[in-house]
């Protein structure tokens, strides 16, 4: 299955609140650690290396300067 870039979240506002709220009270280094751990957990859930490589490419391109 290719990387799904269509809207797929049932409750986008609720997800975003949880995502940002997870960082409450963390230092910048801890926040970075949280993000890294989160990406690894989600990557394992996705499992498919082709999909993950596609996501990595899309995330990397057009990063604002």
């Amino acid at each position: 299955m290719p990387l799904n870039t269509k809207a797929n979240l049932g409750n986008p506002d609720g997800f975003y609140e949880s995502l940002v709220g997870a960082h409450d009270g963390l230092s910048e280094a801890q926040s970075e650690a949280l993000n890294a751990r989160l990406i690894l957990l989600l990557a394992n859930h996705i499992g498919d290396l082709a999909v993950l490589r596609d996501a990595i490419t899309k995330a990397r391109q057009n990063i604002p300067k």
């Binding site: 799904n4 269509k6 809207a7 986008p12 506002d13 975003y16 057009n62």
Partner: peptide, 16 residues
């Protein structure tokens, strides 16, 4: 979210 939203539809519902 803002930088992804123009190209990728999934990010648009996250913009508030």
């Amino acid at each position: 979210v803002l930088s992804l939203a123009q190209e990728f539809e999934f990010a648009r519902p996250l913009i508030n």
